[in-house]
Amino acid sequence: MEKANDIILIGGSAGSYTLIIDMIEALPEVFSPAIIIVIHRNPKFTTKIEDTLSARLKKKIVQAEDKATILKGEIYFAAPGYHLLIEPDKTFSLDLSERVRFSRPSIDVLFETAAEVYLDHCTAFLLSGANQDGTDGVKQLQQMGSKVIVQSPTEALISTMPRHAIEANGHVEIYSNRQIISYFRNLK
């Protein structure tokens, strides 16, 4: 398997799960970028989100593991209870440091570390959520030349997260749910 030269990040919280499923479902059979997803999950509850989605969507979906190489065309979820970081050698690192904006895993942590490594070979989507996680990460991604797409707050089930990122970061691309799904459907 080949290391991913391009990545797509997806950050979501409350209200984002259904759209994330639609995004993965829209993917073509073969695509090049690695897709890395942070969704706020409570580590106290065992979930089999990766196994459930793999079976339902007929795509290989795994939990990111510490020191694992980020591979082309793979779909990863951040483990509940750990921050997910991208290392300079394009591997994952799991971290138990303090929560960021009440969250671990934090969208900001993933976005900020990915921006430093992947620069303009990174596209990030920030979706529905009830806190402000992702806002600082969006700023870092923009500064490093990454493309940032924020879900339209009018279509987000909970608009706090996308609305705050838009207000705090000035120019970001705002996509409707239909545009987001179309992006994934046309991925190569």
Rank of each mutant, 00 (worst) to 15 (best):
G15K: 05
I86L: 12
R104D: 02
A165D: 00
R99G: 06
Y118E: 07
T160V: 15
H164F: 07
T46C: 13
G15N: 14
E87H: 06
E50I: 13
G12T: 05
I149N: 00
Y175V: 09
G137D: 08
E173N: 12
D6H: 09
S152G: 12
D136C: 02
G12N: 05
I158N: 03
L141N: 03
S97D: 11
K90W: 11
F31T: 04
G170A: 09
P80S: 09
A4R: 00
A79T: 12
A115G: 02
L141P: 11
G170E: 03
L19W: 05
T46V: 15
G137Y: 11
K147E: 11
D95C: 10
R185E: 06
P33D: 04
P80V: 10
L71M: 09
A115S: 02
A64R: 13
D108N: 15
S16V: 03
I61V: 11
S103F: 04
I35Y: 01
G12C: 10
F102R: 11
I107D: 00
T154C: 05
A55E: 12
F125I: 04
S32V: 04
V109F: 11
L27E: 07
H121S: 01
I39G: 09
A130R: 13
K48L: 15
L27K: 06
G145A: 04
I7Y: 07
G12K: 10
S54L: 02
L110M: 13
V38G: 01
V138I: 01
T91I: 04
V138M: 02
T123R: 13
A124V: 13
L57D: 00
C122H: 06
Q63M: 14
I86S: 00
I180L: 00
I7P: 00
D66A: 08
I49R: 09
S176E: 06
N186A: 03
K44G: 08
A165E: 02
P28G: 02
T160R: 13
A79D: 14
Q132I: 13
S16C: 12
I36S: 09
H40N: 02
Q151V: 08
S106C: 07
L71S: 05
E50T: 15
V150T: 08
T46M: 15
N177V: 10
L119K: 15
E50A: 14
I86K: 00
L57Q: 12
D51C: 11
I10K: 08
Y175E: 01
Y118Q: 03
V100L: 11
F45M: 10
G15T: 01
R41Y: 03
K59F: 08
A34V: 02
E112T: 06
S106H: 05
N177I: 12
